[in-house]
């Protein structure tokens, strides 16, 4: 069974005078363990699609099914809870709480899940090790570089033991070296932990590391290419 299924998802924004068709019928299946890039020109609907898959936004028409749950059947507060337990998020920026240290940021999401403090702390430390930040666990975001902050965000996304991790342009604010390192690290976690990753990008070097590349144009899937064997 697919981790994520979208069925004829459309999204129309009516906020301006002219309706904007951000998505025009997207059918997509993401299987467990995939490492998928959503690519396409700016304005093609990447963020909108990821937001709908992540239960942050609702489609105008169509369905999103995550691990067998139709997201449209969930209430507002059920959705928040669903995100907490099933989805890991990495945003382009502002991922972290500035007043908390790296380890506290990673722990926070587990604490919200109601896990015991000891477990949260130990798990956070081991996750920060995995993303290569064992010597930065007590640093605040302002004391970390952009690349390091994004690594903490990845660790935080994994901490909740989600079904998959959504990352909307995670490298947009990073230089090419940091971008490459972040992607390598995500790919490694994908292999080691069998964690499903879906990320959007328009950075060619990032696209090159993806195993599957879904290209959106004008709110429709234009191309869906599997390049390497996923685990």
């Amino acid at each position: 069974m697919a981790v994520i299924t979208t069925k004829s998802v459309t999204k129309v924004y009516n906020s301006d005078k002219v309706p904007v068709h951000a998505l025009r019928g997207v059918d997509l299946n993401i299987e467990k363990g995939e490492f998928t890039a959503i690519v396409g020109p700016s304005g093609s609907g990447k963020t909108t699609l990821l937001n709908i898959i992540g239960g942050l936004d609702t489609p105008t028409e169509g369905k999103t099914i995550v691990q067998g749950t139709d997201l449209s059947t969930l209430s507002d507060s059920e959705l928040i809870n669903f995100r907490l337990h099933h989805i890991g998020f990495v945003f382009q920026a502002y991922n972290l709480i500035p007043v908390l240290t790296a380890v506290e940021n990673v722990s926070f999401v587990m604490q919200m899940q109601g896990r015991p403090n000891k477990e949260c702390h130990n798990k956070s430390i081991s996750l920060l090790k995995e993303v290569g930040l064992e010597d930065k666990i007590n640093k605040r975001p302002s004391e970390l570089s952009g690349g390091q902050q994004q690594r903490v965000a990845v660790a935080r996304a994994l901490a909740s033991k989600p079904d998959f991790v959504l990352a909307d342009e995670p490298t947009a604010n990073l230089d090419s070296v940091s971008s490459g390192e972040l992607l390598d690290m995500m790919a490694e976690l994908n292999q080691k932990e069998e964690m499903t990753f879906i990320f959007s990008t328009h950075d060619q070097r990032v696209i090159d590391r993806a195993h599957r590349v879904v290209t959106l144009v004008d709110g429709k899937i234009d191309n869906d290419e599997v390049r390497a064997q996923t685990v």
Binding site: G54, L56, S77, I80, N81, R83, L84, H85, F89, F91, Y94, N95, I97, P98, V109, M112, Q113, R156, S160
Partner: peptide, 15 residues
């Protein structure tokens, strides 16, 4: 933005 991020990752309204 930060509060939006927290809401996104699953911090509920009561919290």
């Amino acid at each position: 933005r930060e509060l939006g991020m927290l809401r996104a990752i699953g911090m509920n309204k009561a919290r």
